[in-house]
């Protein structure tokens, strides 16, 4: 089966791209053929994975063309995002278009890196995925963004709309020496008792891997962040 995972969160800077690219690296290191679909007009995903963020990508796919994904590793490919995602053609696309477009692609794992803020693009990712990871760090603004996503995913599920049936919160950049980080898990547990919570600890290695544009499992497969991401990959596969 193909795993389709949307990494979402609404707020910017909560680790969406790091988690998406980190998971992609984990799955690729396990021998799966992985594609990361970047839905962000900022086009950071391809950059982080050491490829060309200006190449044709997700926008062209949504416009019915057949862009060739760029290759970060033999088994890790990327469809870059970019400003074309804000074009009229993409904005007016049907929420199910991305879901339909990726049906034809031959990969074992497809990750959708959702943008902060831009709801019509984020929705394309939710609808195309069967699992959604909602990222938040230990800050009320991030929790607010994650809360909105969870509420929307719940509403979609109640209405029986197409899209992710399974979702989890990813608590990112967690350092339990800080009081907000300590309170976060308990708070989310009480606000969203039905939702699985996963953790990625604060780890500068993840930041360095992104900055040096190397997939994390190539950069340092033993770092704390890589460990946590592997656990998340296990949860996804555990469906």
């Amino acid at each position: 089966m193909v795993y389709k995972i949307a990494v979402s969160g609404r707020k910017g800077g909560v680790g969406k791209t790091t988690v998406a690219c980190g998971l992609a690296s984990v799955f690729a290191s396990q021998g799966q053929r992985v594609l990361v679909v970047d839905l962000d007009p900022q086009s950071n995903t391809a950059y982080v994975l050491g490829t060309d963020p200006t190449a044709a990508g997700t926008a062209q796919l949504l416009l019915g063309q057949s862009p060739i994904p760029v290759e970060a590793l033999e088994k890790l490919h990327v469809l870059p995002g970019g400003p074309d995602l804000t074009s009229y053609g993409v904005q007016s696309s049907d929420p199910e278009d991305l879901a339909d477009a990726v049906e034809a692609l031959d990969y074992d794992v497809i990750l959708f890196d959702c943008p902060p803020g831009v709801e019509y693009l984020e929705r394309l990712g939710w609808v195309a995925a069967d699992t959604t990871l909602v990222c938040t760090n230990a800050h009320p603004l991030a929790v607010m963004g994650a809360g909105r996503v969870i509420n929307e995913l719940d509403a979609r599920q109640q209405k029986g709309r197409r899209g992710a049936r399974r979702y989890a919160l990813v608590l990112s950049m967690i350092d339990l020496r800080r009081s907000m980080d300590q309170a976060l898990d308990a708070q989310l547990a009480s606000a969203y008792p039905q939702t699985k919570r996963l953790v990625v600890r604060q780890d500068t290695t993840l930041a360095w891997a992104s900055a040096e544009r190397v997939p994390v499992m190539e950069y340092d497969p033993k770092c704390k962040g890589a460990e946590d991401l592997q656990k998340i990959a296990e949860w996804v596969k555990d469906a």
Binding site: P140, M144, G147, R148, N151, E152, A183, L184, Q187
Partner: peptide
């Protein structure tokens, strides 16, 4: 710290209607 998070969750709830 718990209080600051709970008001964020409440706000997320309120914005959801608007969403």
């Amino acid at each position: 710290a718990t209080d600051v998070f709970s008001s964020a969750v409440d706000t997320a709830e309120a914005i959801h209607q608007r969403d």
